[in-house]
Each structure stands twice: as C-alpha cells, then as structure tokens.
C-alpha cells in the first residue's frame, strides 16, 4: 500500500505540479517544433516516454555502480550524454529490425530525442532528487520518475498540438502567426498548470 501511495505522489508531481515542459522548461524544442500536427505529436510523445524510461534506468546504474565508486562524478555530463546517444541509436536499430510498423511511426523522432534536454534533464535530476523525508531515489523510483515525466511531457505536447491545429484557421494579425502565438498559448497553458502548484503532498 505504501508503495502505491508513493507512486501516486510521484505521478501527480511529475505530470502536473512539476511538469517538465511548463514548470521546469525542459524539452521545449520538440514542444514547439513537433506540435503542429496531432498524430506526430503523439508519436513523438510515445518515443520520449520510452527513451526517458530507458535512459533513467541506465544512467542510474552508471551513476551508482561506475561514477560514484570510482570517484568519477565530474564525468557525469559526458558519460550521460554518450549513454543517451548510444541508447537512442540502439533503440532505433532494434525497432527498425523487429517492428517496421512501429519504426514507421516513431522512427523520424528518435534521432531528435538525443538533443531533447528533457532526457538528459531527468537523468541528472534523478541523481540529486530526494523524497520529502530526505531519502534519495532508488532504482525503481528513478525509472518511475523517468516514465511519469515522459507522460507529463506527452500530455502537454498533445494538448498543445490540438490547440495549434485550430490556431491555423484563427484570424490573427500577420506578425503573430506561427511561433509568437504558439508561445503565448503555451504561456496561458503554463498559467493553468501553475494552479496545480498549490497541491501539497
């Protein structure tokens, strides 16, 4: 029971209160770049959830069993980004070989994910994150945090794509079209999400 409660706290925290895009400002490039069409936004979201979960697991193991025991903490950035780049490449090859249909829908997004700062962000955050009582995240916590953060990212990405599809037909001043209005809509969305910050757990 305690585990389930912990999981709920983490899910609500990662998806709503500390949303990666709107509260932490991570993963904005795909948020603004891939949110023009609903189906591509959904594909990107799924790919990000998958890679973030995998990356959280692997970077956690690297941090605990390689970097800390050998005193290599200063190599964290380099080690993590190389791991993520390799992981993305590997996932791409596996999907391409085993499931051509999945590759067709996710394939184009995978190379973009290497430079998605949400992935590196969650990996670094996992190494410093703590529960309210001060205990650091264990392996399972880190993986779940990666998963739920990915879900939060997908949620706002898909919401944004739904709105932008309609904005295409809105009657706007010429200079507001495209990126400026997208940013202002994102601002309105961030305001709405700010309401969740009152949730204390």
């Amino acid at each position: 029971m305690e585990f389930l409660a912990k999981m709920m706290v983490m899910a609500v925290g990662a998806i709503f209160v500390q949303n990666f895009v709107l509260a932490r400002f991570l993963g904005l490039c795909p948020y603004l770049g891939v949110s023009k069409k609903l189906d591509s936004a959904f594909g990107m979201g799924m790919a990000v959830i998958f890679v973030m979960t995998m990356a959280s697991a692997i970077t956690y193991l690297i941090q605990v069993y390689l970097l800390i025991p050998y005193g290599l903490g200063y190599l964290q950035t380099i080690a993590f980004i190389l791991t993520i780049a390799t992981l993305v490449q590997f996932v791409e090859m596996v999907i391409q070989k085993n499931s051509p249909s999945l590759y067709k829908s996710l394939g184009v997004f995978l190379p973009l994910i290497t430079t998605n700062c949400a992935v590196l962000g969650v990996a670094i955050l996992n190494t410093t994150a703590k529960w309210a009582d001060g205990t650091p995240y264990n392996f399972l916590d880190a993986v779940l945090n990666g998963f739920f953060s990915g879900v939060g990212f997908t949620l706002v990405l898909v919401l944004m794509a739904g709105m932008r599809e309609r904005l295409e037909y809105a009657n706007l001043p010429k200079s507001m079209k495209g990126m400026p209005i997208a940013l202002i809509v994102a601002g309105a969305m961030a305001l709405a999400f700010l309401g969740f910050s009152g949730l204390k757990m």
Binding site: L22, M176, M179, P180, L183, I184, G187, L194
Partner: peptide, 16 residues
C-alpha cells in the same frame, strides 16, 4: 514560468 512564454512570444511578434 508563464511570463517567460508570453514575453518571448510578444518579442517575436514585434520582431516579425
């Protein structure tokens, strides 16, 4: 957070 999005949005519109 919302202020960041809105400020950059208006600045881009002005530049356009």
């Amino acid at each position: 957070a919302p202020g960041a999005f809105i400020t950059v949005g208006f600045l881009m519109a002005i530049i356009n």
